[in-house]
Amino acid sequence: MSNGAFEPRLIGFLCNWCSYTGADLAGTARMVYAPSMRIIRVMCSGRVDPQFVLKAFSEGADGVLISGCHPGDCHYQEGNYKALRRHRLLTKMLEQFGIEKERFRLEWVSAAEGVKFQHICNEFTEQIRKLGPLNWNGGKHEQSEA
């Protein structure tokens, strides 16, 4: 970032059974997509504790993606519905912290949808580029040096 151009840093929590496989497919098929996504594999989108999302933002992520199986396809039956409910509530809460809703996405990507994953990464990167960096510091700046 030293040359002034802002490269978004995105964190993606991808479920093992659908979305991670979908991302893998995008890779093995050599689809080109924005390099800004750092992928973390989780067993299920329902495993993503809201603390993970907050931690990601507080430690430098400009955007966070949770991606799981399509509704009805979760390998643990209900995990993705749980992710959906958390996502909507957390989005509302993040806005109260001044984190725009565009920075926090929930998507459904199946094992066959490499193209969709490529598309999401590109679009999310562009969206965050427009929003600019988050630069979270949580007010750690003002105490005296004493």
Binding site: S58, F97, G98, L134, W136, G138, G139, K140
Partner: peptide
């Protein structure tokens, strides 16, 4: 909390 405050 993890975020500590609203963004300035």
């Amino acid at each position: 909390s993890i975020l500590r405050r609203r963004r300035m």
